[in-house]
Simulated scan of single mutants.
Amino acid sequence: MSFAPKSTPLVASGHTRPVTHLSFSSLQDDGSYLLISSCKDGKPMLREWTGDWIGTFLGHKGAVWSTKLSPDSARAASGSADFTAKVWDTYSGTPLHSFPHNHIVRTVALSPTSSHLLTGGQEKKVRMFDLARPDAEPDYLTESAGLAHEGTVKSVVWVGDHTGVSAGEDGLVKWWDLRTRQLTNKINFSNPITSMELSAQTGRLVITSGTTVAFVPALPNSNGKAHSLNLAYAPSSATIHPIWQDRFVTGNTGDEWVRIHSMDGDEREVLKGHHGPVHSVEYSPDGEMFASGSEDGTIRLWQTTPGKTYGLWQGQG
């Protein structure tokens, strides 16, 4: 009798507080990619695609809620409870710019050319900074009363050359023309948005709100169709397989498990390994693995196909 290989995660340790957010880089020309992690210890970490530690970005004085990498992985951006957003050189770990805010920065996004930075957070504002003029006043994306949202801005993403998308605790997802700073579209959820990530390869936003997971075209005027599901629990984060697009993975702050679902919502597998609620999940750009970050302070890397020779799993199948 034979059994399917069991999914055994690799544990990437190093953080000392809960891991709040994970983000992979784009796939590089040599087939590699990087992983950057945010943590309440205030020290974002950069890792190889194998999970091996590259370096730690030192400079924040509070919890880091969001970190993103530029498409070429040369730059990183971070948003923190110390009321700043920072842009870093990933080769040297040097902070290049620090942008002060008046409250906690919960989310950041770099433009495709690393020329601009979007930020959002507990001020309910979305700012756009020109990195060529870091001392200049930022532009603001506002709909009314000088605010972008009526609740904390939980996520901002940059889509294409000129589109920004913001999601807030007010349950709204908004699209902005970054050339005019004008609102162009919005959709409403009945519960606060808990996460929103751009799946660049599938052209979709993956959004969690209450017990809902939604897959929404990243550009509203595209030919894609929105697809949403109601789960039996409230996911904290979700990520879709970038190649196969036949499954998605969720984390959940209500337990310590990572779940794999088919696109009709059926639960395929429950993965156990963390010792605390799971705050963030993210597929690698090649779809060969996904990462989960937890309250337990660890990052775990899971193979899409357990037993396959890949990275540090080589010889473990």
Rank of each mutant, 00 (worst) to 15 (best):
K6E: 14
S7N: 15
V11F: 01
S13N: 07
R17A: 14
L27H: 03
Q28D: 01
R47Q: 04
E48P: 02
W53Y: 12
I54S: 02
G55L: 13
F57M: 03
G59R: 00
K61W: 01
K68I: 05
K68E: 10
D72H: 03
A74S: 13
S78T: 06
A81G: 13
D82Q: 12
L96V: 13
S98V: 06
P100E: 00
P100L: 01
N102Y: 00
R106P: 01
T107R: 02
V108I: 04
L118S: 11
G120Q: 04
G121F: 09
Q122L: 15
E137W: 04
P138L: 09
Y140R: 05
H149Y: 08
G151L: 03
H162P: 04
T163S: 09
G164A: 12
G164N: 05
S166L: 00
G168A: 05
E169S: 14
E169Q: 14
D170Y: 04
D177Y: 11
T180S: 14
N185W: 12
I187A: 10
S195P: 12
M196H: 09
L198Y: 13
A200G: 06
N223K: 02
L229W: 11
A234E: 15
S236H: 02
Q245F: 02
G251D: 08
D255T: 05
G265Q: 02
D266C: 08
G273V: 09
H274N: 06
G297K: 04
K308M: 14
W313I: 05
Q316I: 11
